[in-house]
Design a binder for these strands. Structure first.
Lengths: 143, 143
DNA sequence: AAAAAAGGTTGTATAATACAATTACATTAT
DNA sequence: ATAATGTAATTGTATTATACAACCTTTTTT
């Protein structure tokens, strides 16, 4: 692999992550973790902490606490599973959906302001390459 | 801005950050913060915590602790500033440079494995677009 | 039925972070 | 030239994200 591209990508990815994480802390009412969890619950439907933890590659205890925090804010509901009394399903509430959508919109707005001067093609390519990157990571899950 | 691209970018950026942060935790001996700080000290030369905090848009106290942790590991040295007895310069040590380079190489290796099948052009474009993104964020620092 | 496995929660610990208080020195204003 | 103000840095305290280990309860396996 071309070493210049590699260096550039490494450097810019590191910076980009730092910037975005900082920006989110400053701007979003929902924490990163909560946002991702709500988004997952909305897109994949109700799920227990184990499944959620697997999807996100996080420890079950981490999800357990995050879900409990979202439940306390009434963004999700914990529904007992009648078929297995050990387990629960978390489902996103209407309030949770509303909060998620508001956060998503703020994220969109920020992105839009940052990339407003980009050409359609650049925007399209950026999305496509980010997606490609993620797909390749999924194929190499230990990386 | 095209809404499809926007959605895609938002979604993929969120995922990408999550993945990379997790991967770093699993793989790197140096923490993210330490890595970034060492990299900055190497590229910009000795600096005090205030300057470092400004560059990284972090609180001075955060940098103070990170620098102290790096100092404890002998990756940096704290040199008093003779012109101002309140302040210090942190400089990266040879040991710090070695540790930084080893970490960087591991990061490169991971990236390379993920993107080994990409065309030269895709790699080049990805780097270029990431850089462009970062440059545009810098122009909108409050975002 | 006893043993093992599985879903979840809770205790404890660490890292990154911010804000507030504090210390020690430097600069400015009277 | 001294008092007031400002500045560089550290330290106390708090929060969030995270993991691992211990544990409880229920289910599955032997």
């Amino acid at each position: 692999m071309n070493n210049k591209s590699l260096e550039l990508i490494e450097q810019e990815l590191t910076d980009l992550i730092r910037r975005i994480v900082i920006s989110e802390k400053r701007n979003d009412s929902l924490e990163r973790s909560g946002y991702i969890l709500l988004r997952l619950l909305l897109s994949h439907g109700p799920a227990g902490v184990k499944q959620l933890a697997e999807k996100l590659q996080l420890d079950i205890s981490t999800i357990s606490r995050q879900a409990a925090a979202l439940e306390a804010k009434k963004y999700v509901e914990r529904v007992p599973n009648p078929a297995d009394k050990r387990s629960y399903y978390y489902t996103i509430t209407d309030k949770g959906i509303k909060e998620l959508e508001e956060n998503k919109q703020r994220r969109f707005d920020r992105l839009e302001r940052i990339m407003e001067s980009w050409s359609e093609e650049e925007q399209y390519n950026f999305g496509k390459l980010l997606k490609k990157y993620n797909e390749h990571v999924k194929e190499n899950p230990k990386r």
